[in-house]
């Protein structure tokens, strides 16, 4: 498993811009496409360029954004978390039921919901780190279990959410929804953690090579478990946000988030084999996906074609994506 490095690209030390562009081709591409799409849509549709719609796009990006942040940690450390969508659903439904049927204060319910997410993530992390289970398949298994739990909680719309929780979605600070501002801060915080904290650097190191990381004295298992826990918390937060948006616990909520978040990371230039990629690209991909689904709605593309279109985009994106053969 030790990293063999052969034939490095000789790059002139001076030419930093070029070097950066070459390394971050996926990032440049994703923002280019997003910008082009936004410009074209703005010209074609006055509704799209409306400030209210733009803030709506940003607000729509929050659910996927939250899940992608968690997924990013897991993928950078060399794993995959397939359970995020169902974790969001279980927490969303659970919180909805608890808010309706117990007298607990909403804030406490929400905190408990986030804790439940952490617990789910911790379990995934333990399975992967301590038992050597293959991440994709084992989280697929927990996804199945969580799906069953969601059905157990409710198979129909459930729970009336109090105003105070709906406010999470609706509250505004100036013209911007508070949630968008909080989300932006979360992205910033994640960016800082990945770039400048010891845990962030360890995440990259473990994803790059667990054996080298171990040799360097890093606690590989702890890093792995922590990444899955973060992912679980993020998924729980996404579930709670979805609940605040719809006002009622929807048993079909959070459908497909696991794959959308993996795809967001992949087309944002993050290596699915771990250890390489940036948050900036993943953010671009999240925005792109939000813009596309907004345009679907604006142009009233039939729901039956939306999935197909999205699917084709995903296939093209992963086909363009080139796996690094280092690993």
């Amino acid at each position: 498993m030790s990293q063999t490095i052969t034939a490095p690209a000789p790059v002139a030390a001076g030419n930093r811009t070029l070097r950066w562009t070459r390394r971050n081709a996926a990032v440049v591409l994703i923002y280019g496409i997003t910008a082009a799409l936004v410009i074209v849509a703005s010209i074609m549709s006055p509704t799209f360029r409306d400030v209210a719609n733009i803030t709506d796009v940003l607000r729509q990006s929050i659910v996927l954004g939250l899940v992608t942040i968690g997924q990013l940690f897991v993928i950078l450390a060399g794993g995959t978390d397939m359970s995020v969508g169902m974790a969001a659903r279980v927490v969303g439904l659970g919180v909805a039921v608890a808010l309706t049927s117990t007298m607990l204060p909403p804030i406490l319910v929400i905190v408990l919901g986030l804790l439940a997410g952490a617990l789910i993530g911790l379990l995934n992390g333990l399975l992967v780190a301590r038992f050597g289970a293959q991440p994709f398949i084992v989280t697929l298994g927990t996804m199945g279990v969580l799906y069953g739990l969601a059905l157990a909680i409710s198979d129909g719309p459930t729970g009336m959410v109090p105003r105070s929780v709906v406010a999470i979605y609706e509250m505004k600070i100036g013209p911007l929804p508070a949630s968008v501002i909080v989300m932006a801060m979360l992205w910033l915080a994640t960016w800082w953690v990945l770039r400048s904290s010891r845990f962030g650097r360890a995440t990259y190191a473990v994803g790059g090579s667990p054996s080298v990381s171990r040799l360097a004295g890093l606690n590989v298992n702890r890093v792995l478990i922590l990444t899955y826990t973060i992912s679980g918390v993020c998924a729980a937060a996404a579930g709670i946000f979805l609940l605040a948006r719809s006002g009622v616990g929807n048993p079909n909520m959070a459908l497909g988030l696991e794959f959308q978040s993996i795809v967001a990371a992949a087309i944002g230039g993050v290596s699915l084999y771990g250890g390489r990629g940036s948050l900036v690209g993943a953010l671009g991909a999240v925005l792109l996906i939000s813009v596309i689904s907004n345009l679907f709605d604006l142009f009233q593309i039939s729901a039956y074609f939306q999935d197909l279109t999205l699917g084709v985009i995903v296939v093209l994106a992963v086909a363009i994506y080139r796996a690094d053969k280092n690993k």
């Binding site: 030790s2 990293q3 063999t4 490095i5 650097r201 990259y204 190191a205 790059g208 090579s209 054996s211 080298v212 990381s213 040799l215 250890g275 390489r276 280092n326």
Partner: peptide, 9 residues
Amino acid sequence: QEFNLLPEL
């Protein structure tokens, strides 16, 4: 001979 380095760090 085979370096134990992390290329992305």
